[in-house]
């Protein structure tokens, strides 16, 4: 195989990484303020991806409108998830098991609501791009990969700016350090939590559209990408946005590399082995902050 083959694989790996990044950053955002892993994130992703698909079919939405619809729906779904599953728990309980059961249950419920409505069939997003690929020399590059990379970079850049430069971002960061003191400083903690869930849900919606563009939609993608999002969040250091970003790229490239080296059949084995070795050597993740997780 020649240079162009490896270059195309590299771009594919980075593009996958961008997709994982959008999922994992939403995951990390919730973990950073509430210190528990929201396993309902995949359910939110799959619901909003299907709602985005409906937008393309019913009103003929283009890429941008589809992303907006999916993000809005993802945000609203996540607000419901917080109010139904976590709000009372946060107020009244610190039991690890309840957070775990609650998030898993919500994730399954959302995924199965999609199954009930759309059955087990799979669907494709329409082709959003007039030009499918472009060529540099004799190498052709997939436009959708570059669009996903660009959109992910812009969204994550805006998110980092919001977290670093705005009062809301300051509140989120304060909440991630000490919720009680943040509350005593006059911050409406519940509102910040709801806003954070909305943002994480919007990211899940965008990720769902990306998954739909790159692969196909079926209710099972929620579970599949929940696992990948969690792996990225763990490698990056639970709760760390920067760590999640780097870990996403690493996971995308490692998966691609193992697919080439071991073959696609054994690639998942190689990837999980890599994660195990990584956690053995650096259990606190890339970010270096060893968070205490509730669930």
């Amino acid at each position: 195989m020649n240079f162009s083959y490896y270059l195309q694989l590299l771009i594919g790996g980075v593009s996958n990484g961008a997709m994982y990044a959008i999922i994992a950053v939403g995951w990390a955002l919730i973990f950073s303020i509430l210190k528990f892993s929201n396993f309902a994130h995949g359910g939110t992703m799959v619901c909003s991806a299907y709602l985005g698909l409906l937008a393309t079919r019913i009103i003929g939405a283009n890429l941008w409108l589809t992303l907006a619809v999916a993000a809005l729906c993802g945000g609203l779904i996540n607000i419901l998830v917080e109010l139904i599953s976590f709000h009372r728990l946060r107020k009244s309980s610190k039991q690890v098991l309840l957070f775990f059961v609650s998030s898993i249950t919500m994730g399954m419920l959302l995924q199965n609501l999609v199954t009930l409505r759309f059955s087990g069939l799979f669907y494709s997003y329409p082709n959003f791009f007039k030009q499918r690929f472009f060529r540099i020399g004799n190498i052709s590059f997939d436009i959708s990969n570059f669009m996903m990379l660009a959109i992910a970079a812009v969204i994550l850049g805006i998110l980092i700016l919001v977290l670093q430069k705005t009062r809301f971002g300051m509140a989120v960061r304060a909440l991630s350090v000490d919720p009680r003191t943040t509350s005593l400083m006059g911050v409406n903690v519940d509102l910040v939590v709801l806003a954070t869930f909305f943002i994480a849900g919007a990211l899940a919606g965008v990720a769902g559209v990306f998954v739909g563009i790159r692969t196909i939609l079926s209710p099972q993608i929620g579970s599949m990408y929940t696992v990948k999002g969690f792996m990225v969040a763990v490698i990056g250091g639970l709760g760390s946005l920067n760590g999640a970003l780097f870990a996403s790229l690493i996971l995308g490239l490692v998966e691609t590399a193992f697919s080439v080296i071991l073959g696609t059949s054994l690639a998942p084995v190689g990837t999980f082995f890599f994660v195990l070795i990584f956690l053995f050597l650096r259990p606190q993740g890339l970010a270096g902050v060893f968070a205490m997780e509730k669930a």
């Binding site: 083959y5 997939d142 196909i216 993608i221 599949m224 691609t256 059949s265 690639a267």
Partner: peptide, 15 residues
């Protein structure tokens, strides 16, 4: 080769 549950075949297709 691929598997029934695969949703991304870009590595195989690139080859």
């Amino acid at each position: 080769k691929c598997k029934i549950a695969d949703t991304d075949l870009t590595v195989q297709l690139t080859a």
